[in-house]
Design a protein around this nucleic acid. Structure first.
Lengths: 213, 213
DNA sequence: GTGATTAGATAGTGATACTCTCCAATATTA
DNA sequence: TAATATTGGAGAGTATCACTATCTAATCAC
C-alpha cells in the first residue's frame, strides 16, 4: 500500500499523513526505493487512533505523541504508566513547587472524604485541584455531598473499566491508556444527554424547578 | 474600582481584561469620564467565570461568549437553553445533512438501549455519535454492556444534578449551564483518580491483570 | 502642573495544525 | 522507450487563536 492509498483509506489528505510521519506520530513505511515506501494495516490503524485522539478527545499533536509513546513503549509498571498517561492528557497542570507543604488542599480533602489514596505526584490530583478551584472561583463550589455522589458513581465506572482489562500486558496498557482517554467524551456526552432526558421527562419550564442544594 | 484594581484582584494583566472587554465577554464598566470607568464586584465575578471556562473547561473565547450569553439572556425554556448550551460546548460537531434519514445510528441505538429520548437536533447526540465513531475507529468499540453501565451511573449523576437546581428561574439557568460545563473536569479527574486508586489497591503489575471484556 | 492612569484602537506575537510547493528519483503506462 | 504520474523529504506558507504590546489623547491624583 502506497501513501496515497493509505491516505485515501484513512480519509485524509496525503499532506496530513506526511505531517504525522514527520511529527513521529505515525511509524515510517518500509522503504522499497529512494522514493517509495509501503504501508500496511498497522499504519491505517494508527491513523485512526491519531484521529480519535486529536479529534473528539481533543489532544494536541504533542499530547498525542506522548500517549502513543506510552502504548508503544510501556514501562513494566501499569500503575506508573497510567500515571504518565494521565499526565499527558489535558487539562495540563504545572508541577507544584517543592516547598509547598500542601499544594492540593481541595483535592486532598476530597480524596480523604472519598476514602481514596492521595498521591500529590499523580497528575490527576493537580487536575482535580484545578477543577475544584475553578468551580469555587466561578461561584459554584461543590458540596461534600455532591462530591461523594459523583465519586461513588465514578468509582463504580472505574471498577467496571479495570475489571475488563485484557490479560496480555501490552494489551492491558493500550486498553487502560486509550480507554481512559477515548471513553471520556462518551461519558460526557452521556451525561449531557441524561440532563436533557430528565429535563424533558419533567417538562421543566423555567418556573417549575425544585429545591436548591 | 478602576481597571487596574480589577485586574489585580482577578490576578490578570490589564491588557487581558481589556481584551475580554473588547471581545464582549466582560460587560463594560460605568464610564465616569472620557478616559475612566469604574468596575464592581460583578465584573470580578464575571472574570472568575471566564477564567474557569477558558481554563479547566477548555473553552475558546467564542464558546465562552456563547455560554455567557445564554446565562445573560436565557430564553423562557430551560430545556431549549440547555440544548443551546451543550451546542456551544466542545467537541464541536457539524450539523447533519437534512436528507440523511439516519444521521446518528450509533447514538440512536445507544439511547434506545438506555431507554432515553432520541432527539437528532440535540447537540449532545452528535457529540455522542462522534465519540462512538472515534472509539470504534480506534479499535476499542464500546460493548452494549459497558454503555448500559456508563449510562446508568451517569444518569444517576444527572438526576442528582437536576434535583438540586435552584428554584429561581435565572439561577436555574446559570446553575444548569455552568454546572454542565464546570463539573465535567471534576468528573473526569475523579474517574482518573478512581482508576489510579483501584489499580493501586490491587497492586497491579503488568502481569497481574484479570479477564477481558 | 507634572507624572501616572485610562479608554479605545491597531498591530504584533508565539503556538498550533496543518497545507503547499518544490525537487530529484522512481514508477506506471502508452 | 518515452511521456506522465507519484513519491519521499524538506522547507515555507497559512489560518486561527489567545493574548500582549504600543500608541494617543484625555483625565486623574498629588
Amino acid at each position: 500500500m502506497r501513501i496515497s492509498a493509505l491516505a485515501d483509506e484513512a480519509g485524509l489528505p496525503v499532506a496530513t499523513v506526511k505531517f504525522y510521519l514527520r511529527e513521529g506520530l505515525l511509524h515510517p513505511g518500509v522503504a522499497t526505493s529512494a522514493t517509495q515506501a509501503t504501508y500496511d494495516a498497522s499504519h491505517l490503524r494508527r491513523l485512526r487512533v491519531i484521529r480519535a485522539l486529536t479529534g473528539p478527545v481533543g489532544l494536541t499533536v504533542q499530547q498525542t505523541r506522548a500517549i502513543l509513546g506510552l502504548i508503544d513503549h510501556p514501562g513494566d509498571d501499569l500503575y506508573a504508566t497510567l500515571g504518565r498517561a494521565v499526565g499527558s492528557l489535558p487539562p495540563a497542570t504545572s508541577p507544584a513547587s517543592d516547598d509547598d507543604p500542601d499544594p492540593y488542599p481541595r483535592a486532598r480533602a476530597a480524596l480523604a472524604a472519598l476514602g481514596q489514596v492521595y498521591d500529590p505526584n499523580f497528575a490527576a490530583v493537580a487536575q482535580l485541584e484545578a477543577a475544584l478551584e475553578a468551580v469555587e472561583a466561578a461561584g459554584m463550589p461543590i458540596s461534600d455531598d455532591r462530591l461523594l455522589e459523583y465519586g461513588r458513581h465514578v468509582r463504580d465506572i472505574a471498577a467496571y473499566d479495570l475489571e475488563r482489562m485484557p490479560p496480555d500486558p501490552n494489551s492491558a496498557v493500550e486498553y487502560t491508556v486509550l480507554g481512559t482517554a477515548l471513553y471520556e467524551p462518551v461519558l460526557l456526552a452521556l451525561r449531557r444527554l441524561a440532563h436533557q432526558d430528565i429535563a424533558a421527562r419533567r417538562d421543566l419550564g423555567p418556573g417549575t424547578a425544585s429545591a436548591g442544594e
